[in-house]
Write a protein that binds this DNA or RNA. Structure first.
Lengths: 333, 333
DNA sequence: CTGAAAGCGCTAACAG
DNA sequence: CTGTTAGCGCTTTCAG
């Protein structure tokens, strides 16, 4: 079997405590003994057993990142940001998908109580944050990312969806569009609520009446639902001259429906989206999209989590980052 | 702090061994004591501390899945399959991305020696399997997935790339195409080598001379490289009448270039790809693609890994799954 | 069916 | 700067 710290100690002629110090606090060990210990470690091909260390320090060295589903490219970059920070802190990431199933989430959350993981970053967007209700966030370090709960002392990092939508609608209006349709997600999601607010505010300010028929909701962000929504929009007697999808897949699907109806983008209709994943560039024409600072969201969320893991009484920070509009061919008039 | 097994034992008036049995081997405990213990656990809101258990059993309860990058949708489904099986086995997954950097891989592989993880599924495609050379696969459970090493006793599950390419080329020929271009990945990758073999074999069999100018290699599977390759193909004096990309992004990029040159797909040129991710459906026209059994690859690889974790001397299985061609608009003549 | 006792491998006081 | 000692929380013999 593999060698232990006391094997090394014996071979080096020192105590296991000293070996431990060589590994963890090399500064307080004399050069000479360090040399002896290192050579013993090498001879025995020794690697510290993390399980022993974990028990002793009662830390697992893992954080959990709970997302709905990684087939949504939005999460990929966020996860990268999280992994960047956690690696700096010598922590591993356990990435969990709940497939929007609260039962699965509940199982994963047990990992906090069982000490499988030391903290949790919640990218879950379960409606009404029901999930958060199951977690004792006073006891375990938890940070929300993207989605967030109002009036709850849980740290979060999110993006200013209202503002992002405002800039997008304003821009479309500036290109002369007046019948701007919106394909939104379930309004019980905060992002959907906020984006709708931005949409409504901007039209209100410009004195444009809201046409309820121009607003569609999809229960899931996939091609099928999106195509149904887009078809009903484009089949209207007085169809929209622009469509905003709250996710790239929605916009791409809408564009596909427009093509099928013989419409040209952007000549006949403008198309815009949120998320700015690489689909927007691969599409023909390329799609104007709202780029959220996904990587930074991940980094910030992870930083916040470590703040709380280091000090459970640290101030609860709740921050909102700004998004950016990337204008591409699909709206260029 | 949270309660321990001996707190529960004390409250229930039994030994901690009995509490342990209630949790792990309930069958050999009397109904009565079980009841008492359960109620004590509830009163104390007890959850077993996994760190203690792990040390005792010297297992971490984690397996590692090492992939190049999860922005490649190919891996997403494989990972899902892996997670499905590992969850059944009460194992957690540590998903690691090496960003095609051997130094990062090397760091992760230490986790095996440190016992942070109990096994490894390698989806890495580092050229020449250099990575595998760093792992003592006789000592630690390792399974390769997708990529594999010939003549090495490491279990793997892969897909019959040669056969898949053969069927695709044969099909394109059957639609009348004769100048079929190939945008391939670095030939030192096994998948690239095998797909090239399938391409060459089929053309040879049909008595069609290989035009080397029709074969392009990209060092990375992104839009930029792909567009450069596609542009040089379509700028030829005698351009191809079909382009196969070994990944969806490559094909989509090629299609974009074709559009820019005023060509129509499939009328002027056929486009086909490997991977069959949802981009192929979102594209207009939708793209003919080779669908690999990604989910099953993940499941099989994970099953193999547990076989080896359960029994290090288990027979080394090396299996090859079949891919399927999905015909869509981009090649319909 | 249950209890006592040992110990997984490590780190952290404490003492020198 | 280093050694001694204790113990993290759990499971697993071995007895009974």
């Amino acid at each position: 079997m593999s060698s232990t710290i006391s094997d090394v100690a014996k071979l080096a002629g020192v105590s296991s405590a000293t070996v431990s110090r060589v590994i963890n606090k090399p500064d307080i060990v004399s050069e000479e003994t360090k040399k002896v210990v290192h050579s013993a470690m090498e001879q025995l091909n020794y690697y510290p057993n993390v399980l022993g260390r974990n028990l002793r320090q009662s830390r697992s060295g893992f954080i959990m990142v709970l997302v709905p589903h990684i087939n949504n490219p939005f999460y990929i970059k966020v996860i990268e940001g999280i992994q960047e920070i956690s690696q700096q802190k010598n922590y591993n990431v356990m990435l969990c998908q709940n497939y929007i199933d609260p039962a699965i989430s509940a199982q994963y959350i047990q990992h906090l109580q069982q000490r499988t993981v030391d903290g949790l970053i919640l990218l879950d967007n379960t409606i009404d944050n029901s999930l958060l209700g199951d977690i004792d966030y006073t006891k375990y370090p938890v940070v929300q990312c993207s989605q967030y709960a109002k009036n709850t002392p849980v740290p979060y990092v999110t993006v200013d969806d209202t503002q992002a939508m405002r800039s997008l609608v304003r821009y479309l209006l500036s290109t002369g569009r007046r019948r701007i349709a919106l394909i939104n997600g379930d309004k019980r999601f905060i992002y959907a609520k906020n984006r709708f607010t931005g949409y409504k505010q901007t039209l209100d300010e410009m004195g444009i009446a809201i046409d309820k028929d121009l607003i569609k909701y999809v229960s899931s962000l996939d091609c099928q639902s999106a195509m149904i929504a887009a078809t009903s929009l484009l089949d209207m007697e007085n169809p929209p001259d622009a469509i905003i999808g709250v996710s790239d897949v929605l916009a791409l699907s809408a564009m596909k429906v427009a093509f099928k109806k013989g419409m040209k983008v952007p000549q006949d209709i403008s198309i815009a989206s949120f998320d700015n994943t690489n689909m927007t560039v691969l599409a023909e024409p390329s799609i104007t999209s709202i780029s959220q600072p996904r990587y930074n969201m991940g980094k910030e969320a992870c930083n916040m989590l470590f703040e709380r893991m280091d000090n459970p009484n640290a101030k609860v920070r709740q921050i909102k980052l700004q998004a950016e509009m990337i204008i591409r061919d699909s709206t260029l008039l």
